[in-house]
Design a protein around this nucleic acid. Structure first.
Lengths: 129, 129
DNA sequence: CGGAATCCAAGATGATACTG
DNA sequence: CAGTATCATCTTGGATTCCG
């Protein structure tokens, strides 16, 4: 019997080895994964559009993030194969489902940001007092 | 008008400066944040219990993660101030709400892991064909 | 037992330059 | 435009050690 590891907490050995779910979660919740998912919720966008929309992401990281999400089947990449180059990205149906969950979490956090900041203040003054 | 940055995508400047929501999300979705949140869903646990339950986390990272979540007001730390030391951790009401959302996301991923792995395979064979 | 402090290896990220 | 390749850097994470 395996001990209770984080594999179990995340749904167990369904993926086969270690913890596939954990790897997916890492892609999704990577520094830029969330933002890409949210940015694609309202439709198709080109590479440079995404860069502008997300802001602060380097070409390298955006490309890397998009590739990871594409590999996982969350993002669809359409290369028009023209010059000048034109590539468009969109969510797959599965990606839309995922993005919905992510958006809920992001929304909750957004709605509770003030409360979190207040909690931090409380702690800070308690530490002083 | 501000350009669309990831600040906007995550709920805008509600936190005051940059993007407080983003920072919170980083805490929550950090490598171990998710697991701690999930591990605490079923009640109070001691430090070493958490280490065993989560599995694979070092003392340093667990302590660091717990402190961050505590600062944000998601986790409550109760130090009994005895020898040998005894400290217990639990979710705050806000933490329970958050953990519920996180659990939903984790569950979705867990339920869709097979589909993601299938998507990866499809891509792989398409690349070959 | 529950950490804090330190040192070090590994990985993530960014700026830049280059290509089709 | 849409990337890739490369190098420098900054951050993470882990192992170890020490303490109350």
């Amino acid at each position: 019997m395996k001990p209770k590891t984080y594999d179990d907490l995340l749904g167990g050995p369904q993926g086969g080895r270690d913890c596939a779910g954990r790897g997916i979660l890492d892609h999704v919740m990577s520094r830029w994964g969330v933002l890409v998912l949210l940015a694609l919720r309202d439709g198709t966008h080109r590479f440079s559009e995404l860069r502008r929309r997300i802001g602060g992401v380097s070409e390298k990281m955006l490309a890397q993030t998009l590739r990871a999400l594409e590999e996982d089947g969350f993002v669809l990449r359409h290369d028009f194969g023209e010059v000048p180059p034109r590539v468009e990205y969109a969510l797959t149906p599965m990606g839309r489902q995922l993005a919905t969950h992510v958006a809920r979490l992001a929304t909750w956090i957004s709605d509770n940001t003030a409360q979190v900041l207040a909690a931090r203040e409380t702690r800070r003054s308690k530490a002083k007092g």
